[in-house]
Measured scan of single mutants.
Amino acid sequence: LVRYRTISKIPQITLNFVDLKGDPFLASPTSDREIIAPKIKERTHNVTEKVTQVLSLGADVLPEYKLQAPRIHRWTILHYSPFKAVWDWLILLLVIYTAVFTPYSAAFLLKETEEGPPATECGYACQPLAVVDLIVDIMFIVDILINFRTTYVNANEEVVSHPGRIAVHYFKGWFLIDMVAAIPFDLLIFGSGSEELIGLLKTARLLRLVRVARKLDRYSEYGAAVLFLLMCTFALIAHWLACIWYAIGNMEQPHMDSRIGWLHNLGDQIGKPYNSSGLGGPSIKDKYVTALYFTFSSLTSVGFGNVSPNTNSEKIFSICVMLIGSLMYASIFGNVSAIIQRLYSGTARYHTQMLRVREFIRFHQIPNPLRQRLEEYFQHAWSYTNGIDMNAVLKGFPECLQADICLHLNRSLLQHCKPFRGATKGCLRALAMKFKTTHAPPGDTLVHAGDLLTALYFISRGSIEILRGDVVVAILGKNDIFGEPLNLYARPGKSNGDVRALTYCDLHKIHR
C-alpha cells in the first residue's frame, strides 16, 4: 500500500512540481520508500527539464536528425535550378540546329562534286560548318556529364541527390541515346576521305529529338503553341524528305545512260545542264529549293507536275512521300480545326451564355430598361472574369491554397485601402477568403433606401454616388468604403439613402 501511494504521487509531482519531503505519510521509514524516492526525484528532475525545454521552444527539443539540413553532394545540380533551365534551352537550340543542318550536310555532301578544292585539302579548321559541328559534339558530351550530376524525382516524389543513384537512373534511361548522339564521328573518321560515311553517321544526332519531343509535351495545353509546333514538325519532315529526294537524284545521276532524272530535267529547265562528264548542272541553292518544293507539294497532295519522278527509285520514294503525307494530314492537320476551336472556345461560351440571357429575357418578357441593365451587367461581368467562376475553380483546392490565391487576387485593395494598413498577414488572409466580388454598370442602383444592410462594401474600381431623395450626399471612388460596420450592432440596419454607380464599378463586399 505504501508503495502504491508513493507511485500514485508521481503525476502530481510531474505537473505541480511538489516535493515529496513535505508529505508526512511518505516520510515513514520503510525500505521500499527509501529505494523508490531517489528514482522519483530523478524522474521528476528529468520531466521538469523536458517541460522547461518545451515551454522555452528551444531548438534542442527536436531530434538531432530533424535539425540537420538535407545534404547535397558537391557538384550536384538541382533539376529545378536556373542554371539547369538555361542549359536545357541551350541544348534545345543545338538539337534544332542539328535537326536542320545534319540531314542537309549528309545529303548535299554525298558524292558532291561542286567546283573547288576537296575538304581534305583545305583542312578541318577552315570549314565553318565542321567547326560548328565540333562545338555541338562537345556541348552534347558536356550535357552527358551534367546529367550524371543532376537530381531527379523518383516514384515516391522524392528528390534524389545521391550521385550513385543518379548515375544508375541515367544509365537506365537516356544515357545510350545521348551517348550515340554525342559521338564525334568527324574526329574519329577525319582524314579518311569518307565524307559520305561521316554525313550518314552524323544523322545519329537526330535521336535527341525524342527527348525534345517529350520536353515539349508540357506545352500541349496551349493551343497556339501546339499549332506552332505542328507546323514546325511538318516543315521539318518536309526538309528531311527534300534532303533524301536530292540524295536519290544525286546518286543516280552519274550512272544513268539517259538523262531522265529530276536533276537533269531541272538543269535543262533553268539552262544549267550537266555536261557529258557529269559536272556542271544547277547550283546547290536551286537543287535544295526545288527538292523542298517537290516534297511540300507531295505532302499537301497538290502535285503540280513541273517536278516529277521519272526513275524507279524516284517513283518509289514519291509513293512513300504520299503515304507520309496522308498520315500527316490525319495526325496534324486533322487537329488544326480542334485547336482553332479551342482557341476561340471563350468567344463561343460568351455567345452561348448571351443567347441564354436573351432567351430568358424573351421568355419572361423583361421590360426594355431592365433588359438593357441585365445585358450590360452580363457584358461587364464577362469582360472582368472571362466567364470563369472563381468560386467553382477554387473549390477543388485546399483552404490554405485558397487563402493564398484570394490574398493575391485582392492584393491591390488590401495594400491601398486604409482600414487594412497594419493588419497582420493572417488577418488579411482571413479577410480575403470572405470577400465576394460584384460588378455594376453605370446607372445601376446597388442599394435602395430602406434596404437591409448586411454587408460592408469596398470599391475596387469606378465611382458611385450616394443620394437622399434627389440630393447627392457624397461621391465615392476607388478604395472608399460604404455599408454597415460589421458586428457593431446586434441587428442589421437599414439604408438611409440610395447608392448608384456612376461608372463601371468593381466592388468587394463582406457579409455579416
Rank of each mutant, 00 (worst) to 15 (best):
D404S: 03
D143A: 01
P82R: 05
G223I: 03
A348G: 07
I260L: 10
N275L: 05
R71Y: 14
N391I: 07
I96F: 01
A338Q: 06
E196W: 04
D88Q: 01
S192M: 08
L409K: 03
T150I: 01
V159T: 05
C400H: 08
R205Q: 01
P254Q: 15
K287R: 04
A449M: 06
L409C: 03
P184H: 01
S220F: 14
N156K: 14
Y344W: 05
L292W: 01
E158Y: 04
M328W: 03
N312P: 01
E252K: 03
L207F: 09
C232W: 01
C400W: 11
G426L: 02
D257P: 14
S194E: 14
F378H: 10
R371Q: 11
W87Q: 01
V132F: 12
S331L: 06
H169P: 01
W240C: 01
D286N: 01
A247L: 05
G422D: 15
I248Q: 01
V131G: 01
W262E: 01
A432S: 08
T295V: 13
G261F: 01
S283T: 05
N250V: 14
D137F: 01
R362F: 01
S258W: 11
N410G: 03
I177P: 08
D178C: 01
T437I: 08
T424M: 03
E157N: 11
T438G: 04
L266G: 01
I177E: 01
V86F: 12
T424N: 14
K395V: 10
L110F: 08
V307S: 01
Y293D: 01
P441A: 12
L227N: 01
V86I: 14
Q415W: 05
L292N: 01
I135M: 14
A204C: 06
Q269E: 01
V307D: 01
K436R: 12
L206D: 01
S161F: 10
S161R: 08
E112A: 12
I141C: 11
L176C: 13
L187R: 14
D404A: 03
I138P: 01
L188S: 10
C126T: 01
P70G: 14
P419N: 06
K395S: 12
W174P: 04
G261I: 01
F101I: 06
